[in-house]
Nucleic acid binder design. Structure first.
Lengths: 219, 219
DNA sequence: ACTATAATCAAGTCTATATTTGAATTACTA
DNA sequence: TAGTAATTCAAATATAGACTTGATTATAGT
């Protein structure tokens, strides 16, 4: 058992990755970046933190190997280092949902109760679109849609939904998606749609999960 | 955007899972548990911590939803809560290896340099065994072997390898595996085997990864 | 060169948390 | 009731983590 120190050093580095993940604010930054690359300012807005603080947290994420950056003029654009990062986030969510009683409670009370229909599964959506039974709307802001979206999805940011309501087809089911399973945008969208008499459901989660699953994306 | 607090609370819980992962000692406990369930005492030995400290860290892992326990007589047996946990560990390792320069360095200097042959991939091993070209030896301690092992593997704990050396077949390649990619046992084993003139290689990683991949296991 | 903008850095404050040990306690078995 | 296994508690120590403020660097445009 000659070499024993390197293993310890290695585990310390692995812990560094986990430490970077171990903060609600940083998880939110990562979720934002899972929608597409973004500047510090945009990330600060998305997370509700000051620019300086956001920058600081981004350094911690970088030291954990989770994000990288490049310069573009005066801006610094951050992005995830690896496709594995969204999978890690999904794994953490999964463990929390299945084994932390309180998470299960929060989800039930705040999310499940807002939408009594079963969400559309990812594989299910592929079939619905292929057969023309459904149209897909992406209710995230334009910038996030532009950075990548489900193949064939139409971008209707939530704030423009009211003015577009009348132009949507009544002979198709409308499937809305946004950032992920705990993003409220798609919940709001299906609520509005149903009030106007549309058949509408949510996709089970958001764009990052779709992409992790290697399903067809545009742009 | 009615509900905003629950999302924050949710992310705090997710961070709890990551916090549980964010310690070298706890990662080592999890790796030990990935070999199979185990009592506090055994885990204390495996990690080199005091029993009290081990117990304490196990509580943190439990609060993070990563481990569970059951009583068996006077013993408390811990196990991983979910098959997703080894995947999370693998994801963290993967990110660290690919994006933390120092990890890459430690691996190269301490592991790659000990074994100049390419390790056997998991899918490759299946073929080698099927055709009879290779035999598989599990060089972990008996207890870990008993808790689950690769289908058809023979258990030869490292300390018994010298006395078994003469009885191994010379017409097959010998593939050794142990706990994972950074476990030294298999490295030591192939070194001994090659010195005795055997054709021997390591499996690319260990039993937990094999199991995560849904490949055939015994017991 | 000058100015505005974007981001980072350095320093400081505040509060919190992690790690560990040894002793006391609980839970169970024989 | 003695003995074993694990947990809990108290307490000491060490570390550090989050966030703010003000200064600084880098770049682009004029």
């Amino acid at each position: 058992m000659a070499v024993i120190a390197p293993k310890k050093r290695l585990y310390e580095k692995f812990a560094l990755v986990a430490k970077a993940l171990a903060s609600a604010n940083r998880l939110e930054l990562l979720e934002a970046l899972a929608q597409g690359e973004r500047g510090v300012d945009g990330l600060a807005q998305a997370s509700g933190m000051s620019v300086a603080n956001t920058s600081h947290h981004l350094q911690i994420l970088r030291e954990g190997g989770l994000v990288q950056s490049r310069k573009e003029g005066t801006k610094v654009i951050y992005s995830l280092t690896d496709e594995e990062v969204p999978s890690l986030l999904a794994g953490i969510r999964y463990v929390a949902e299945r084994h932390l009683a309180e998470v299960e409670r929060i989800v039930r009370e705040n999310f499940d109760s807002r939408d009594n229909l079963t969400p559309v599964r990812r594989d299910e959506l592929l079939g619905l679109v292929k057969s023309g039974e459904a149209m897909v709307i992406d209710v995230r802001p334009r910038a996030e849609y532009d950075a990548g979206h489900i193949e064939g999805a139409v971008n209707i940011p939530l704030e423009f939904l009211p003015e577009r309501l009348s132009k949507l087809p009544h002979d198709q089911e409308i499937v809305a998606y946004c950032r992920g399973p705990y993003c409220m945008l798609a919940f709001d969208a299906v609520e509005q749609l149903r009030q106007q008499g549309y058949r509408a459901r949510r996709l089970e989660d958001g764009f990052p999960e779709w992409k992790v699953d290697q399903l067809p994306v545009d742009q």
